[in-house]
């Protein structure tokens, strides 16, 4: 089965940061948008409609996967997401350094990396985006 993809529509993003709130809440049980795995990158001049959402591309030839020495990053065959397997992770931080887009982040408290896992096929950011700037289809 061809897995669904995240589609980002930059023109529609208002930088309301609902997606960030939802993501942080879903994964960390606290509403700290800075720890979200999706980032609403607002246009520095705050020009209406010129904001961009940055979220993991689940790249085919992913730099994080290549960098991981411990084989802790695996592609989920159902969702297509590259999942971080916490039990296998040795927490070296190589993946964070390797991702060219900044989509692999470091959890300072838990001391391990975090990345978008497509919420097992039902991304919360999509559900909470009021404008449809991010869609999963």
């Amino acid at each position: 089965m061809e897995s669904k993809l995240m589609h980002v529509f930059p023109g529609k993003c208002t930088a309301c940061r609902n997606c960030e709130q939802a993501c942080a809440f879903a994964h960390l049980h606290e509403g700290r948008p800075t720890r979200s795995r999706i980032r609403a990158d607002a246009d520095p001049q705050l020009r209406e409609g010129k904001h961009v959402l940055v979220v993991c591309y689940q790249c085919d030839a992913a730099a994080c996967v290549a960098a991981c020495p411990a084989n802790a990053l695996w592609r989920d065959t159902e969702t297509g997401a590259i999942n971080h397997i916490a039990e296998r992770c040795i927490r070296c931080g190589s993946c964070v350094a390797a991702c060219p887009f900044g989509n692999m982040r470091w959890e300072p408290l838990a001391q391990h990396p975090s990345k978008c896992d497509l919420c097992k096929g039902d991304p919360v950011c999509v559900r909470f985006c009021p404008t449809g700037a991010i869609q999963y289809k």
């Binding site: 930059p10 023109g11 980032r39 990158d41 246009d43 010129k50 961009v52 940055v54 290549a66 960098a67 020495p69 964070v96 350094a97 390797a98 991702c99 060219p100 887009f101 900044g102 989509n103 692999m104 982040r105 470091w106």
Partner: peptide, 30 residues
């Protein structure tokens, strides 16, 4: 060394990488 890439690539933090990604998106779009 392991992956045959440039060492300098690793010296950008994730926040700045996101900003760079955003910027290049905006450049393409607008």
């Amino acid at each position: 060394q392991r992956k045959g890439v440039a060492e300098e690539d690793f010296y950008v933090c994730d926040v700045c990488k996101v900003a760079k990604t955003g910027l290049s998106c905006r450049k393409v779009m607008w």
